[in-house]
Design a protein around this nucleic acid. Structure first.
Length: 285
DNA sequence: AATCGACTCAACCGCCGGCAG
DNA sequence: GCTGCCGGCGGTTGAGTCGAT
């Protein structure tokens, strides 16, 4: 198998394969790849790389196309619905990023993997639990998912996506980015003035949010494609019952977390959302 | 303005399975 | 059955960016 880093260390340049490029793609390379695939299609990546005149490995071309250049790639922040689906599917399948990605149209396994590592695993670290532990999975189900559901409800009020720009530099957006399904149905307001009170009451949703969950997820599911995972079937499964779940461990974890980590950025919340809460807190509303 | 640390995410790496010869 | 190639997948890295100081 070709390895550019080794080839570049060899005596260079009398053969094309010794000129393989690595690192960030240039606009010119992107254009070459896009143009070639638009006329010849995907596949046979090694041949494609040569024929397109790219000094890249086939693997590199494939990765660039699938993770960045492909027209139906969605850019920008994951929506609450998508986050919810990731959490749900990961609890079912584990680190099967590709499999999970197949159920989030327009999202790549790489993106989901990055989301999990940078957001979800951070929460686990803060709770001082393993991200694969039962305790953390319960924390997700009892705390995080209900919060996402709440956020989905709030989406029905506010179609603008202005929340939380921190750490989310503007990305080049494809048309799909602005084509998210609006999450409607529930119109209950959660515009608490006391945001921390709202935070601490989040656990309440573990008992009464099941219906909300079911309806919202069902609604969301209706908006995705047939080959996608049907979430409502899961919400009907006993093993996904919020009501029956013991939350004592989560309560302990949550209490410790609130005590120790409240002043820090990051929580069982989406980072953007948490930042918004901090801003509100700083404003002493 | 400069520096530093945290964070993001594109890209790479190694491994594995499928397949053709 | 063996070997080599290829594509796909999950894990990891590091450059760039941003906010805090």
């Amino acid at each position: 198998m070709s390895k550019g880093i080794l080839m570049s260390n060899n005596n260079s340049s009398n053969e094309d394969e010794f000129e393989l490029r690595r690192g960030p793609w240039t606009l010119e390379e992107d254009n070459l790849l896009i143009h070639y695939i638009s006329t010849h299609g995907e596949g046979r990546w090694n041949d494609l790389a040569k024929c397109a005149g790219l000094k890249r490995t086939g693997k590199s071309c494939r990765l660039r196309w699938l993770n960045y250049l492909k027209p139906d790639i969605k850019r920008g922040n994951l929506t609450p619905q998508e986050q919810l689906l990731i959490l749900e599917l990961h609890s079912k399948w584990g680190n099967r990023w590709s499999k999970i990605a197949h159920n989030l149209p327009g999202r790549t396994d790489n993106e989901i993997k990055n989301y999990w590592r940078t957001r979800v695993q951070k929460q686990a670290r803060q709770l001082k639990v393993d991200s694969n532990s039962k305790k953390f999975v319960e924390a997700i189900k009892n705390l995080w998912m209900p919060r996402l559901l709440e956020k989905m409800e709030q989406c029905s009020y506010s179609s603008s996506s202005s929340i939380g720009k921190k750490h989310n530099p503007p990305l080049p957006t494809s048309p799909l980015t602005n084509n998210q399904e609006p999450c409607t149905k529930h119109t209950k307001s959660h515009h608490d003035n006391n945001t921390w009170s709202s935070l601490e009451n989040s656990r309440i949703y573990s008992s009464d949010s099941m219906n909300v969950m079911t309806e919202n997820v069902t609604f969301f599911n209706n908006s995705i494609q047939d080959e996608c995972y049907h979430v409502e079937s899961v919400s009907q499964q006993p093993d996904f019952s919020y009501q029956e779940m013991s939350i004592s461990e989560c309560e302990v974890a949550e209490a410790n977390w609130f005590k120790d980590e409240m002043a820090e950025e990051g929580s069982l919340w989406n980072m953007d959302e948490f930042w918004q809460f901090r801003k509100l807190g700083d404003a002493d509303i």
